[in-house]
């Protein structure tokens, strides 16, 4: 069997049923490929055993970069490259540099984090996503199980998914 092409799908109506189902399916030794939902379900990441995202760290580092760039830019431009007397003030004086530093910190932090999010989640305008079920973006939660990643027979997996509370159990095959 080729990789990532043949799936069993469990379709759930309710997010709380889904959460207990994920636990039950995983406990019976079936590996879940991914769960798709129309809205964020709280606690699903722990149920699936996902590690916490490190995006906040990315946001912090990009913010730090923004702070550094903004301060360096202002001090270099007005303090060293072309000092100008403005109202008799010091060439380099920190307080008036704070607003621009703050804005650039926020700007780089936000753009850097969102950019990282787009890249790690592979979100891009020309992407053709694999759609397991069109009702995912409407009202159904879908648990996808990759047959190539599990040793159990298809019918056994279907039985496990069905007994976990799934409203429907379907097959899904992809050509590519």
């Amino acid at each position: 069997m080729e990789n990532n092409k043949h799936f069993v799908l469990g379709v759930y109506d309710d997010e709380d049923v889904l959460l207990t189902a994920i636990k039950a399916v995983r406990e019976s030794g079936v590996k879940i490929h991914e769960v798709y939902s129309p809205f964020p379900v709280h606690g699903i990441d722990e149920a699936l055993g996902y590690k916490r995202t490190r995006l906040p760290i990315a946001a912090f580092l990009f913010g730090l970069l923004g702070t550094t760039l903004a301060l360096t830019m202002q001090v270099w431009m007005l303090g060293f490259d072309w000092p100008m007397i403005i109202g008799g003030k010091d060439f380099v004086s920190l307080p008036p540099f704070i607003p621009v530093t703050f804005e650039l910190t926020v700007l780089l932090s936000a753009l850097g984090m969102v950019g990282t999010f787009m890249i790690v989640s592979d979100l891009k305008p020309y992407k053709q996503p694999r759609i397991f079920d069109v009702r995912i973006t409407d009202d159904k939660h879908v648990m996808a199980i990759d047959l190539s990643a599990n040793n159990l027979a298809k019918d056994d997996i279907k039985k496990i998914v069905s007994s976990s509370g799934a409203g429907e159990v379907n097959d899904k095959d992809f050509e590519d």
Binding site: Y36, P40, V41, T53, F117, V120, P129, I136
Partner: peptide, 9 residues
């Protein structure tokens, strides 16, 4: 695609 991992992020 509504993946749980993407939702988490």
């Amino acid at each position: 695609d509504g993946a749980a991992k993407t939702w988490m992020r």
